[in-house]
Amino acid sequence: MNANSAHLPSYLEQSEAVQARFASIRERDVVLEVRNLNKRFRSTHGEVDALRDINFSIHRREFICVIGSSGCGKSTLIRILAGLEQQSSGEALLDGKPITGPGQDRGMVFQGYSLFPWLTVKKNVMFGPLANGQSTSHAEREALLWLELVGLEKFADAYPHQLSGGMRQRVAIARALVNQPRILLMDEPFGALDAQTRAKMQSHLLDIWRNIDITVLFITHDLDEAIYLADRILVLKPHPGEVQEIIEVPVPRPRSAAQFTSPEFLATKARLEQLIHPAPVAESENEQAVKPHMIRFTNVADNVE
């Protein structure tokens, strides 16, 4: 697949430090457990399995990325965990209690920011505490604290439309964290950001995660992002959505951008590429029908290459 792959170590090889880290993670409590989870949709083609027999568990303060090609059901999975959708069968347990609907014990960050445009940054963050019956003064104190943590205390009175994409996503993170959830669910949160902002946000998210007691489930389709952030990567396979492999990322922590070219990183990436982009046989009928017929519109002598 990759010319270098022959020289790479196996992605399964872990240094002693990494092994010790995973051992300590496994000793921690399980925060989220998913058992035999199934989701069937009724569509025009009859019943479709969006998720089939999903099993995994996440330990406290673990960082899990879910990765898969489009249509593999990763969004459905996170929406079920957030309580925004109901599974068809199986169960999802948070601290041993089944998830039945949305709740403040799970924070969610959406790709489209979804900040309330009519509220200032501060009031956006205050929304959760107020909805849960806390006093305004308490909510305000909490909001300012979390805004400081994401570095936006100066923008407390700005409206979301006055902020850049990266800043908006910081507000969304603060808004989710202020409820002090057990787990932070992130649905491709940096997907709409430019590469530079995205890299900044990734390291900022790791910073937050290092400093507070939070478990993260992060959905992405960016392989580098998944390896850079995650302890373990859950690879989903589409049609039907099934867990293909759960990879323990052998890249040691603390992570930095310099590790993008380390052998462990490249080995993991090679493995992910193998899983997600196998030999291109599975082209859909529609895509096969798209056959560009190139016509020359310029002078024969007028070449660009």
């Binding site: 609907g101 969610m108 929304f127």
Partner: peptide, 8 residues
Amino acid sequence: EAARTLGT
């Protein structure tokens, strides 16, 4: 949906 996940 965001409001619901925040506990509304």
